[in-house]
Design a protein around this nucleic acid. Structure first.
Lengths: 205, 205
DNA sequence: TTATATATTGAACATTGTTCATTTTTGTGT
DNA sequence: ACACAAAAATGAACAATGTTCAATATATAA
């Protein structure tokens, strides 16, 4: 008969949490590429090996940091969606909000897309599913703009729309390309989404 | 008085080329993350240290591999543009061609966007400029669709259009997201570009 | 309290990119 | 042809890193 083990389980959870926050802060401040096992454990106040009793490995820990980031992003997008009823305006504000989140949380946001599992290892299912927050606010306004779309078409279009917005944000924020001032970028992105919606409506005769 | 030194310069160039091809093949077969200095030099038939007499470091070598990839991509896009006169069709074929290139050269194409310079080191100017091939075929058909656009607006819009297409291709080809069959993806991308152009034309009253 | 299960520790290991003293090769002047 | 200087090639050694594991410490159960 198993009761709830308290002291041990509690300390374990505490350590997991401290490691998680340490990793998160390191990524936030120095980017994913600046993340070191020794930094994390020393920040968390445990020995190097401690990381491997709490998490499978560093990649797994990063997955959990990304999980937090996705949740935060999901919450912001949801709040934006709920605050704007009109579908066109809502889509535009979602895009703008995505840009804002990426700017305000640059390193954490980058880690979402920069991180790669080791060769041959798949992203675990539970984390794959968390990526739904990236699309899920887009489907409803699109459905309002074109009620004829079925479930699949809606999912596909949402995905494409997110991907396009993400592409613009992503490329604009990379060192590889010439930087554009934030305000100007927002204008460009907004205009782009407007084009997209106009085209979408035009084809919906 | 310096004449053209032959033997020494020739061997040096030969080694650089062998290292470049070795690195390229390794990236093509195993991806950027599977690239190892020891593999490259053993493939190229030189000692480990030889890499560092030919190139500054591995990142520099990767830049040169990416340079080849960008040139190949640029050539394909140029060929596509020259083969299709009508601006709308041309834009669609360019997007489709970009998708095809990404699929056919997955690892090499991924390396273009996955590679990061070490912390604090900038991508050198010569390589930054090479990224122009990603946009340069887009501006002309857009200008045809709306002759009123000035140089800056055209550049901005080309950039956004590439970024959107790239975003869709990029996200569709990532393990992080659910895979879509190539043919279906091409259809989605094409439809998306059509929307975009329609919206673009509609706003151009 | 004692015994067993569990967790923590940090030294040791394996794998990397990079450096550099040594050796080999190439170019030049006599 | 020979000797000397300059350059390049070599690979052992180094530093940084993620990960493991035998030893130690701690918590639970009897």
């Amino acid at each position: 008969m198993k009761k709830e083990p308290t002291k041990r389980e509690l300390k374990k959870q505490e350590l997991k949490e401290k490691l998680l926050q340490a990793a998160r802060n390191r990524i936030k401040d120095n980017g994913l590429s600046g993340l070191r096992a020794r930094d994390i454990t020393s920040d968390a106040g445990c020995a190097l090996g401690g990381l491997y009793t709490a998490y499978e490995d560093i990649d797994n820990l990063v997955l959990h940091v990304n999980s937090i980031t996705l949740n935060a992003l999901g919450a912001e997008l949801k709040a934006i969606a709920e605050a704007e009823r009109a579908p066109v305006k809502r889509l535009i504000k979602l895009a703008s909000g995505y840009l804002k989140f990426a700017c305000d949380n640059h390193n954490l946001w980058s880690a979402l897309f920069d991180h790669r599992m080791p060769d041959g290892v798949d992203v675990p299912e539970w984390h794959l599913m968390e990526h739904a927050v990236l699309f899920e606010q887009i489907a409803m306004p699109l459905a309002e703009l074109n009620p004829k779309l079925d479930r699949d078409e809606l999912a596909t279009l949402s995905r494409s729309m997110f991907a396009a917005v993400h592409g613009i944000v992503s490329i604009s924020l990379q060192d590889r390309f010439i930087a554009v001032p934030r305000a100007q970028l927002d204008k460009q992105l907004t205009q782009f989404v407007e084009f997209l919606i106009k085209g979408f409506e035009a084809s919906n005769k």
